[in-house]
């Protein structure tokens, strides 16, 4: 870590520029209606990334993003646990417990490229695809409901279904990617 501060700062800043907007968007959603600051969540995540930067800088964008996502999720869960223990007046014992199954989700998703994701979205049923796209553009449930003239609850179901289908479409890709990796190495 000796010269990271000076020599690799530019590289690190480029890394942050690339990942920060999408991460911050996610952080805002997680921290909405709580005392948690999205900026803080992202900041903590990048601080950890800095310690791991030696390993992260040479990985694919997808892998780096998956790592950042796992790290930010861990920080968020820490926050939730802290809130819980504080509200009960207990010491922060829960902080020492690490989350479950964190590696698994990351390993699956770090193999999915954005192109593969776009293709998977194309393959969704039309109403699920359109609802998911509107949502990804930033539309709330009631706006999407209005657009399709359906109840708000339906939008919720559609998005849940869209995500389930995306996962089903992408996870076989993950299996293929793993195989490719195994045979090429």
């Amino acid at each position: 870590m000796a010269n990271l501060f000076n020599r690799e700062r530019r590289r690190y800043e480029a890394f942050i520029r690339q990942h920060r907007p999408s991460l911050l968007g996610l952080a805002r959603r997680l921290s909405a209606r709580s005392s948690l600051e999205a900026e803080d969540l992202v900041q903590e995540t990048f601080e950890r990334a800095m310690n791991e930067f030696e390993a992260l800088k040479d990985r694919t964008d997808a892998a780096a993003a998956a790592w950042l996502c796992t790290t930010m999720t861990n920080r968020f869960l820490d926050y939730c646990r802290r809130q819980r223990t504080e509200s009960r007046g207990m010491p922060h014992l829960a902080l020492v417990q690490e989350g479950v199954a964190q590696g698994e989700a990351q390993e699956n998703w770090e193999l999915v490229s954005t192109e593969e994701f776009q293709k998977a979205v194309e393959r969704l049923k039309p109403h699920l695809r359109d609802a998911y796209r509107l949502h990804a553009e930033g539309k709330r449930y009631n706006a999407i409901a209005e657009h399709f003239n359906v109840p708000v609850g339906t939008v919720g179901s559609w998005l849940t279904l869209a995500r389930r289908d995306l996962k089903d479409l992408l996870l076989p890709q993950v299996a293929v990617a793993r195989e490719r990796g195994a045979t090429s190495s």
Partner: peptide, 25 residues
């Protein structure tokens, strides 16, 4: 918790792939 991990990975991918902003923002 494990559902959250998966969902956030998917949503981050969506933000990167579709370039959309998060709804809340």
């Amino acid at each position: 918790e494990s559902g959250l991990r998966d969902l956030l990975q998917l949503e981050l991918l969506a933000a990167r792939a579709l370039g959309g902003a998060a709804p809340v923002a």
